[in-house]
Design a binder for these strands. Structure first.
Lengths: 247, 247
DNA sequence: CTATATAGCGAACTTAGTTCGTGTCAAGTT
DNA sequence: AACTTGACACGAACTAAGTTCGCTATATAG
């Protein structure tokens, strides 16, 4: 294996299967050697159980039963773990074979898959938003989404920008949803939490400056399940076919 | 003034002008006393010049010429500074008087204002995404956007969810744009940066797995100025009037 | 002139990312 | 069989940053 973890990160972003691995004989590993995969597993477990804020070098290594310094033979820095995490998440997405007749349904499904992956690991979409755009697995997902939209007859430029907008929205939605969920576990209950409390808050606003917020407090705070998500995705998707190629 | 900064934060999120201030006589302040406003000014200056990542308690206090501990008489914690920052940003937005004939233009303009404020302070939209939804100034902006959409004849529930989607997208877009800009200043040039380099990257991908990414590399990386932003906003906005009230 | 409250501050504690030098085991060499 | 080597892992330590605590000094009240 390449001695320098920087080279390994570069390799991860480069073409797959391009050698670089299968170096030393896969002979007897003595105990359980630290690998990038095991690091990723441990990190995902930490995020799943304690949230993204709890993802520290030390929490990962303690889940791994090793010392913090041991990680740095395999990763460049902490941001590198984000890269691994998002890569793993993307690798588990199932990309459908594009069906021109069902492109709307297919793109919605991929977005829902992404959303659910994000929500399974609360806060992890923060990492997705900060991700550098050359991660191989994210490119694979982009390719899949692009294929769906092109099959649906969407103009290439329209499709490219739509994927960008969809990705941003999904990540933002998951981040917001995760944070609401996390706050509900927080013992520091000084923060407003439930929908009822939010409505009360809105109704306590001065009538003169906030007439609409007060009148429609219910609408503003509604959206159980993924209604808001479905709504926004419909807005983004339903217009695509009508789009002339953007200037 | 309330001795406990927690009470002050609560007061900021409560109704404005509701007393709580004008406490001790506004007599002679000896030098320049630390105030929440001065903290906000200093923090904004730090973010504007060095980016959101450089926003630390110590960077704020050094810009203020004081010690880190001095801040904690005025703020609860670092997250509180985010709250102040976003509040200030929102307070500087100009909300138009709703004009039913020009509601699309008006909502687009407000979103563009938010976008430009975010971009003036690189990375600050991270704070906006994490913001608790009861900040008074953000509520004021929401009220203004709601008024525009309602004047445009949009259903209340549709309007409420549309504002949510728009806010998420604008924040995500600004975050992404800010990070690209920051990476361009970064001396660590091992990262791929320019559009040309990105196209090269895409073209280096294996043809079998990435046919569309390769063929439309140009489209995927295009979008100068705010073309992508305008495109996404158009998708979100142009369908609103057609919406039946969501279930 | 003295007492008191309050804002500001220095020092220190804690957590977290990262680096460095050393130890240790496995495979290959003589 | 003993030695060398090299990669991997690790303990300790350094740095940066958020936060707390208790002291000080000043301005106002009595």
């Amino acid at each position: 294996m390449a001695p320098d973890p920087k080279q390994r990160r570069a390799a991860r972003h480069a073409q797959p299967g391009a050698a670089t691995e299968a170096a030393t004989t896969p002979s007897a590993a003595r105990k359980p050697p630290i690998t990038v995969d095991r690091i990723t597993d441990a990190a995902l477990q930490v995020v799943a159980t304690q949230g993204y804020d709890a993802l520290t070098i030390r929490s990962v290594t303690s889940a791994l039963g090793t010392a913090p310094s041991s990680l740095y033979a395999h990763i460049v820095n902490k941001a590198d773990i984000d890269d691994l995490l998002i890569g793993r998440l993307c690798s588990e997405l199932v990309l459908p074979k594009p069906d021109p007749a069902r492109w709307r349904e297919q793109i919605r499904d991929v977005c829902a898959q992404i959303r659910d992956q994000y929500l399974r690991y609360p806060g992890i979409s923060r990492a997705a938003l900060a991700m550098v755009p050359t991660n191989l697995e994210t490119l694979r997902v982009n390719e899949g989404m692009l294929a769906i939209l092109l099959a649906g007859g969407i103009q290439p430029q329209t499709a490219a920008w739509a994927i960008d907008a969809l990705s941003l929205y999904v990540a933002g939605y998951a981040l917001e949803t995760s944070m609401v969920q996390q706050r509900q576990k927080d013992p520091d209950a000084t923060w407003v939490l439930t929908q009822d409390q939010l409505v009360d808050r809105f109704n306590a606003l001065p009538q003169a400056a906030f007439p609409n917020t007060r009148r429609y407090a219910t609408e503003l705070t509604s959206g159980t399940g993924h209604q808001r998500f479905d709504f926004a995705l419909a807005l983004l998707i339903d217009n695509l076919a009508r789009q002339a190629p953007p200037a």
